[in-house]
Amino acid sequence: MKVLVVGATGGSGRAAVTALLDRGHDVTVMVRTPDAQHTFGNRIPGVIGDATRLDDVDRAVRGQDAVIVTLGITENPVRVRLRGPARTALDVRSTGTRNIIDAMQRHGVRRLIVQTTYGVGDTDGRLPLRYKLMFSLLLGPQVADTVIQDRFVHESGLDWTLVQPVNLTDSTDGGDAFTSTSGELAGWQVARSKVGRVLASAVDDEENVRRTVSVS
Results as ranks from 00 to 15, higher is better:
V114I: 12
D159I: 02
T123W: 08
T97M: 03
V215Y: 04
A144H: 03
R98G: 10
T172M: 15
G24F: 05
S182W: 02
P128H: 10
Q149S: 14
L162P: 01
D150K: 01
D35N: 15
G125P: 00
T116R: 03
T146M: 15
H38Q: 15
T123L: 05
A60I: 06
K132P: 04
L199Y: 01
T9N: 07
Q164A: 12
R197F: 01
P45M: 09
D102A: 12
D35Q: 15
G24D: 04
D91T: 14
Y118T: 00
E207N: 13
S214P: 02
K194C: 04
I44Q: 05
Q142W: 09
P45S: 12
T52M: 12
A66C: 05
W160L: 00
G49V: 07
V109H: 02
V198C: 04
T161K: 05
S171F: 11
V3M: 03
D145H: 01
V109S: 04
K194H: 14
E184C: 00
T181M: 01
D124V: 12
M30C: 13
R111P: 07
S12R: 06
A60W: 03
V29C: 11
D55S: 14
G49M: 07
D159K: 08
G140T: 08
V195L: 09
G46F: 10
T179N: 00
T179G: 00
V195D: 03
L129E: 12
L162G: 03
D22N: 14
D91F: 05
V153P: 05
G63Y: 11
D35I: 14
L82C: 13
A66T: 01
W188A: 07
R211C: 08
G140H: 07
K132L: 12
L158E: 09
S94I: 03
L168Q: 00
V209K: 11
T169H: 08
T97W: 03
V114G: 05
G140A: 08
E155Y: 06
G196P: 07
S182V: 02
G72I: 03
T179F: 01
R110T: 12
S136A: 15
A66M: 02
A36D: 14
N99G: 09
E207T: 15
G49A: 09
T88Y: 07
S171D: 15
V47R: 13
D176Y: 11
Q64E: 10
S180L: 06
